[in-house]
Design a protein around this nucleic acid. Structure first.
Length: 706
DNA sequence: TCGAAGAGTGTGTAGACAGCATGTC
DNA sequence: CTACACACTCTTCGA
């Protein structure tokens, strides 16, 4: 195919200038095809192509030409906050055209109520869904929807939201869906009423293979899909292959199926890095910056410090955001040579490497006890697709570690030579379907059964199933008083409106409602446990040792009784562990102590606290809307203590920006107990916190009061 | 008598979205 | 609904 020159595109000269400034002279094949199929003329498209094949640029061209030719607004939806952030930064370029770009998600908040003034809005799928539910006036003006990483629709938990966003976007404007390769793209395109651009084009070719680890000698064989093979030598297959790539000045991304393996593999590789030439000065700088991270645990920092000096790091969700950022950036700058990661890095931000090692193809499934499954082909593609850095590598290389001879063919067949799973509707679960119905009723006007039927017909759910669920959903939502019927119209009750606005799972809502109405005031632990034991609660793993003692350590009565079912019991205990963690947290137990006591990472603690913050807030509002005054008071107080992890007496202090649990306690123990007292004793504050920080805090306190 | 290789046993197991209220130096 | 990988201990076997 002839690729189009930027110069000959039928677009505004300013757009061309921006492209050229980025060094783009020519569109690549998939981009060219997209343009030919009407990308610049507002045509709905489904683009199915590998990682790094330039989909983001297509989205930019689609959005910008729509905005320039037709006005309106464009939303770019992604499944991850980190991606939202990444795209936002990229799209900022277009402000040169006078377009305004914003982003919004749970934690990065450009600015919600100002969004009406923006042209391009980057948001997570959930946030977009939430904005619709809240009926933000500006959202009606959105008429161009980019649905990024659309294959997320196959995710059992997050997929339903992607699908429901697609259903609505289809009615309200033009869809540009971007996806990694999927099996049934024709069917999906038909459903989206979009034309298809499907390619396997990659900017850097990919060599896929298996790394056979069968023999116990020190040489291992890499067998490529194309029939060629080569040998690598070393301590074990992963080490041998990794060192081989690094010695040729490449970087390696190793994927492992658990955190423990990731850490162990990183340590093992680091033991052989003495033979590699490294930039010690830069590595030292990175290692030092690890020590200064504010949100990391001491043990994590210590472990990473030593690894990084050898050019290696591990990476998983147990690490705090600060630590992960440093590692990702140092790898991007080619200072760190190897990252051993769990699947965090497979789907996340853009972080390519010369070579990718896929250490395991099995993964434990915590939803079914004792069940291990093969990772989906989609996930294999996501991981292997990280191989090959445009501009640096001639080709990328990905290998799957295979431990037995019989598995060599199996892996070849199952992963290297296989199509990706088809996209299917995941709305066929009670919880997902009920939420979908609730969201339609909360965002549309004058909803009748007929309105809902039309929406449901627009989903990808098989007709029979949809019909069955529909009746069931209406009855359930009516019975549980989320919605009410007024003549032929369906409206939200006050309770239903609250739940929808809070973005709570309907089953979470019913659990909270039932527990609170049936019980009087309980202990802190009981509230935390109830909230954690809902579908929206955080999950933590429990060891055998913990399993035995958790119930013994219980010193007050819970709201919910111990279940008999084995699976439910493990959830029950997991929630109890969350409750204990939360109680320690708001009792100001030292962070390192909490991490050690419960065997979790700093990133885990942050995630648990965030979720519980939202849930205590939600619990407070549920109690409030139900008129349960006693519970409402307790939950309100808990919520205020959860965010910063403090006892009640510190609440006034942590409201000052820059003061967290540690600084607040320090000030309090020296007699400074409120923002007012900070202002009255500036010298003492400076003495306690240091001159620079002290001054800043005094200023913030003054602002906080007014 | 020692050590290597092999058999048996116990243990643990990925990630990450959502509210709200405010203007970041 | 179809486990695996690893660490660790115990057992066997040969020189």
């Amino acid at each position: 195919m002839m690729c189009i020159n930027v110069d000959s595109l039928p677009i505004n000269e300013k757009i061309k200038d921006i492209l050229k400034k980025r060094g783009i002279q020519k569109l690549n094949p998939p981009q060219t095809e997209a343009v030919q199929k009407g990308l610049l003329d507002d045509k709905p498209l489904l683009i199915v192509s590998p990682t790094a094949s330039g989909k983001t640029l297509m989205a930019e061209l689609g959005m910008v030409s729509h905005l320039i030719n037709k006005g309106g607004k464009a939303v770019y939806a992604t499944p991850l906050r980190a991606l939202t952030n990444e795209k936002y930064v990229t799209f900022k370029d277009w402000e040169q055209l006078g377009l305004k770009v914003a982003m919004t998600s749970g934690d990065y908040d450009t600015d919600d109520y100002w969004l009406k003034d923006y042209d391009i809005i980057v948001a997570t799928y959930e946030k977009l869904d939430s904005l619709w539910r809240h009926n933000s006036p500006w959202i009606k003006e959105v008429d161009y929807f980019v649905l990024d990483e659309f294959h997320y629709m196959n995710d059992p938990e997050r997929g339903p939201v992607v699908e429901s966003v697609a259903v609505r976007a289809k009615r309200k404007g033009t869809i540009l869906a971007l996806s990694a390769t999927i099996g049934n793209y024709k069917q999906i395109a038909e459903w989206l009423k979009a034309d298809v651009v499907a390619t396997n084009w990659r900017p850097v070719p990919l060599k896929e293979g298996v790394l056979y680890a069968g023999n116990k000698k020190k040489d291992f064989v890499v067998m490529y899909k194309d029939g060629t093979s080569r040998k690598v030598y070393g301590e074990c297959p992963i080490v041998a292959f990794t060192l081989d790539v690094i010695s040729k000045d490449g970087q390696v991304l190793v994927f492992r199926s658990s955190r423990k393996y990731a850490e162990a593999t990183a340590v093992k590789i680091s033991q052989f890095m003495n033979f590699v030439k490294l930039n010690d000065k830069k590595l030292h700088e990175v290692a030092e910056s690890i020590k200064e991270v504010e949100d990391g645990g001491s043990n994590e920092k210590e472990a990473l410090y030593n690894l990084i000096l050898k050019g290696v790091a591990y990476h998983h969700a147990g690490l705090s955001k600060g630590l992960r950022d440093i590692i990702e950036n140092a790898f991007r700058d080619r200072i760190i040579k190897v990252i051993v990661a769990t699947p965090t890095l497979a789907a996340g931000v853009n972080l390519p490497a010369r070579a990718v090692v896929i250490g395991d193809i099995h993964r434990f499934n915590r939803k079914v006890i004792g069940f291990t499954e093969y990772i989906p082909v989609m996930e294999y593609k996501q991981m292997s697709g990280r191989a090959g850095r445009p501009g640096f590598d001639e080709y990328g290389e990905s290998v799957v570690v295979v431990r037995t001879k019989s598995e060599v063919d199996k892996v070849m067949q199952r992963y290297l030579n296989s199509d990706v799973e088809p996209l299917e509707s995941k709305l066929g679960s009670e919880s997902a379907f009920y939420s979908f119905i609730l969201s339609i009723i909360s965002s549309e006007e004058d909803v009748t059964e007929r309105t809902l039927t039309e929406y449901i017909q627009d989903t990808l759910l098989p007709k029979e199933l949809a019909k069955k669920y529909f009746k069931q959903a209406l009855n359930w939502l009516l019975d549980n008083e989320f919605i009410a019927q007024e003549g032929e119209y369906l409206t939200l009750t006050k309770f239903g409106r609250r739940i929808s606005d809070l973005y709570l799972n309907t089953f979470t809502a019913v659990t909270i409602k039932d527990v609170l109405t049936r019980n009087g005031k309980g202990c802190e632990l009981a509230y935390f446990h109830m909230l954690a034991y809902t579908p929206d609660g955080p999950l933590v793993s429990i060891t055998k040792a913990e399993e035995d003692v958790l119930l013994d350590e219980l010193d007050c009565e819970l709201f919910i009784e111990e279940p008999y079912d084995e699976y439910e019991l493990s959830n029950y205990l997991s929630s109890l562990k969350v409750a204990f963690i939360m109680r320690d947290w708001i009792e100001e137990v030292d962070e390192d102590t909490i991490l050690g006591r419960y065997g979790i990472g700093s990133g885990d603690l942050r995630a648990i606290v965030d979720t519980m913050d939202w849930l205590t807030y939600s619990g407070f509002h549920v109690a409030s809307v139900l008129g349960l005054e006693e519970h409402k008071e307790v939950l309100e107080k808990l919520h205020m203590r959860v965010k910063d992890g403090v006892k009640e007496e510190l609440i006034p202090l942590v409201k000052v920006p820059g003061i967290g649990r540690v600084r607040a306690r320090l000030l309090y123990s020296h007699g400074i107990k409120t923002p007012e007292e900070i202002i009255m004793n500036p010298e003492k504050v400076k003495q306690l916190l240091g001159p620079k920080l002290g001054e800043k805090i005094v200023r913030e306190a003054a602002r906080a009061i007014t």
